[in-house]
Nucleic acid binder design. Structure first.
Lengths: 211, 211
DNA sequence: TGTACATCAGTGAACGCGCGTTCACTGATGTAC
DNA sequence: TGTACATCAGTGAACGCGCGTTCACTGATGTAC
C-alpha cells in the first residue's frame, strides 16, 4: 500500500490541517491521535509514518493556526488602515466566537498553551510579537503613549474578550462583550491614514465597521 | 475507620480546597481524582463517599475559586476607590502571574471552561456579571460611554493580559504586558472619589500603583 | 524499456498505562435500648 | 451510664475504557540493473 511521494506529502498536510481545526475545536488534551486520523479517513496505526509523536503534530498544527492568522493580518496591513480595522473588528464577532475550530488559537487554547512545552510557547510568543509590531503601526496613541503598548493592550483585550464571550452562557452578555471590544478597537486604531485616504478604491466595497 | 461528622465535613472541605488549587495549577483534564486525594493524604477509593463524580468536585472547586475572588473584590469595593484600584492592579502583577494555582480561575482555566458543562459555565457567568456590576461603580467614563461597558472592557482585558503574560516565554514581554494593563486600569478607574479623599488613612501604607 | 527487488504508507491487533469508578472489607463512631 | 448493633469514612484491589505508541504484515511505488 505504499503511496507516491506527492500523495504522502498531501496526506501529511491533511493530517496537520485537520489537527489544527480539531485541537482548537475540542482542546489539545481532549483530542486523540486516533480521532484525528479517523477524520482524515485513515487508521491510527499509520500516524507514526508521518510524525514522531502527538506532541510533534500538536506543535505543527498550532504553528499552522498561528501562521494562518498572521498571514491574514499581514494581508490586511498591506491593504491599509480600513482593512486592518475591519480585520480586527472581525476578530470580535459572533462569527468568530461560534467558529472556535477555525479561529484564533490563543483564544481557543489559551489556558492549555500556558502549560504547553517550550517549543509551542516559543512559537506562540514569536507570533504574538509579530502581531503586536504590525498592529502598532496602525494605532492612535496619546502624546505620552507608546504605540506598541497600545497594540499590546488592544490585542490582549481582544483575546480575553473572545474567550469570555465563549465562556459566558448568556447570549446577550456574550454579544455585549464583543460589541464593547469592537468599539474599543474603533477608538484605538487611528482613522484612515492619509495613505489610505489617497487611495480609497476599496472603501465602498467594505462592510461597515459595526455589523 | 468511620470518622466523626465534624471530621468528615473537614475532610470534604479540604478535598475541595486542594482541588481548587490543583485544577487551576495543572488544568482540569490533566488533574486526576487520585492525585487530588493523594495530596489530601487519602487514597482514591474514598473519594466517592464525598462526591458523586469528578465532575461534581470540579464544579464545587471552580465555584470556590470564583467565590474567593469575588469576596476579595467586594471587600476592596467596600474599602473605597483606592483599595479597588489596588485590587485590580494586583491582578496584573508578576505575583499573580506566577501563582496560577492561587489566582483567577478564568485566566487559569479559560479555554477549558469554554468547553465545560452547563453548570460550571452558568456559575462562571454569574460570577463575571457580579464582578462587572461592582467594578462599574468605580469606572471613569466618557460622556457617551456606559460605565458597565467600560467595566466589561477592562475586566476582559485583565483576563486576556494575564493569560498572555503566562503564555509568552519572554520575561521582558510578559512584564510589559502586565505593566501596560496596570496603566490602563489606572487610567480607567476614576481617581480617588470624594468619599476616599475624605478618609485617606490607608493611602500611606499602600504600595505604589506601579510596583 | 522491461524485470527484480527494496522501500515504506497504511492496516489492524496488541502493548502498557492511567483514568474514573466500583466494591468487599475494616473498624471507629453514633444510636437504640 | 453502659452495652449491642448499625452506620459509614477510608482502604486497596479490581473493573472497563481510551489513551499514545509499537509491530508484523500488505502491496503499490520507486529504484537498480
Amino acid at each position: 500500500m505504499k503511496k507516491s511521494k506527492a500523495e504522502t506529502a498531501k496526506t501529511r498536510q491533511r493530517i496537520v490541517e485537520i489537527a489544527s481545526e480539531a485541537l482548537r475545536a475540542r482542546g489539545i488534551e481532549a483530542t486523540g491521535v486516533a480521532q484525528i486520523m479517523a477524520e482524515a479517513g485513515l487508521t491510527h496505526g499509520g500516524f507514526y509514518r508521518h510524525f514522531d509523536s502527538k506532541e510533534q503534530l500538536v506543535t505543527e498544527a498550532m504553528a499552522m493556526s498561528r501562521n494562518d492568522f498572521i498571514a491574514k493580518t499581514l494581508a490586511a496591513a498591506q491593504q491599509g488602515t480600513e482593512a486592518m480595522l475591519q480585520h480586527f473588528q472581525d476578530y470580535v464577532t459572533s462569527d468568530h466566537r461560534d467558529d472556535i475550530g477555525g479561529g484564533c488559537a490563543w483564544a481557543a487554547n489559551g489556558s492549555e498553551l500556558v502549560r504547553a512545552d517550550a517549543k509551542i510557547r516559543q512559537n506562540a510568543t514569536e507570533g504574538f510579537r509579530t502581531l503586536v509590531e504590525k498592529a502598532a503601526l496602525f494605532m492612535k496613541s496619546q502624546p505620552d503613549e507608546d504605540k506598541t503598548d497600545v497594540a499590546i493592550s488592544v490585542l490582549t483585550n481582544m483575546i480575553g474578550a473572545l474567550t469570555m464571550s465563549r465562556l459566558v452562557d448568556d447570549p446577550v452578555l456574550s454579544d455585549r462583550i464583543l460589541a464593547v471590544t469592537r468599539k474599543r478597537i474603533a477608538r484605538t486604531i487611528r482613522p484612515s491614514s492619509s495613505k489610505a485616504a489617497a487611495r480609497p478604491r476599496k472603501l465602498a466595497s467594505k462592510r461597515p465597521a459595526n455589523h
